[in-house]
Design a protein around this nucleic acid. Structure first.
Lengths: 203, 203
DNA sequence: CGATCCGTTGAGGTGCGTCAACGGGAGTGG
DNA sequence: CCACTCCCGTTGACGCACCTCAACGGATCG
């Protein structure tokens, strides 16, 4: 496996690939944060996901990338050719099970996001988002409370189907309600996790 | 394969399973239409997909069903135990490739739906929906124009993140604009398919 | 120390939701 | 055969959650 991969370091803002390009590489993120997004002709943007250390990129893809990918922070990653991976598939049947499991996991996440975008209020979306960041940080063994928020308000808005201003206002309201607090723009403390979970679930 | 499946006929409104139930069965729809949906505690509903003849149900699932499933029309389907399917996986490695391909296809669809729900207007959502119905009917070898619309306005709204009323009004506007026409509530003619595609794409 | 980017806040607008009414078709029972 | 009811789709009036536009302060950087 080591024979076919190479590591890279990218600075924040670097575009790994654009939607529609041929899907030649697969990546494994080792540090930092990457956002995936789709664009409409007039510039409207939908962020479809954020990736953190340990996440794979390009695996569950068809021939072309179905989204663009851009580094949110400085990142380090491992990169290898998709053709090499497909060669490995024949040698290691177990690998296919892993891929299927990962695709299923992504599907579950995608459907939660569909519920969020279709039916949740701004407050519920923000609460869900903060909890997701915290849970994923914990799973990576990082600090989960307060949780690091590497992306901008604008990125958050494009992920949650909201505007920058609504994200900012909703965070302010949660802060005034004593549910969360913020020592800086990019760090959120979950002061009332239970309340946050109730809000996120739609109670 | 035939040894482990059984066929069934269900009437419109029949609930196959609810979100959270153990995922014991896998289905293949042979006729009719099924809707998949998630609920919030206060009753808000998000339809995550519609299934038609040829579609599988429960395949790309984890241990529990992650959505509820209800027959939209009378349906006929083949049903078999998930454990039986997993037994087949060891015998037929090809099957795993098929499953992975189907999961990938569902992921592509899910991300298109995320873009729709996050960033498209009501008009764009409806246009996208009509085109999707027509394209899928064509792929099944059914009449694609006018296209059959088996689900209610309410179901369409819950799929597109809109209300019944907005769906109805938007259809009326498209009709008045000469883009579509309707000989009945459940049948839509795509009079200006190009215009519809421009609207759906966000131009 | 100007320029730029980001986050916040306010004022005002709007697209879609809410509430209500109505008509038509299907099923039901007298 | 005809009320009667129920469900569905449509339309109108109105409200509101979120968007738009604008201003401003702080941080970063050349």
């Amino acid at each position: 496996m080591n024979a076919i991969l190479q590591t890279a370091e990218l600075t924040a803002g670097y575009v790994l690939f654009d939607e529609g390009e041929a899907s030649v590489n697969v990546y494994n993120l080792t540090s930092g944060c990457i956002k995936l997004y789709k664009l409409l002709p007039d510039g409207r943007r939908q962020v479809t996901g954020f990736l953190f250390a340990g996440d794979f990129l390009g695996l569950s893809n068809t021939e072309d990338y179905i989204y663009s990918a851009e580094a949110v922070t400085d990142v380090t990653l491992c990169k290898f050719k998709r053709t090499k991976l497909e060669g490995l598939l024949d040698e290691i049947p177990e690998l296919e099970k892993r891929l299927l499991g990962m695709a299923r996991h992504e599907l579950v996440q995608a459907q939660d996001q569909i519920l969020l975008l279709g039916r949740k209020t701004a407050k519920e979306r923000i609460a869900t988002f903060i909890l997701m960041l915290s849970d994923r940080a914990q799973r990576r063994g990082e600090q989960s409370n307060p949780v690091s928020v590497p992306m901008s308000r604008n990125d958050i808005g494009d992920y949650l189907g909201l505007t920058t201003e609504t994200v900012s206002r909703t965070l302010t309201r949660l802060r005034r309600g004593g549910i969360i607090s913020m020592e800086s723009d990019r760090r959120i403390a979950l002061d009332e996790r239970d309340a946050l979970q109730d809000i996120a679930a739609g109670f």
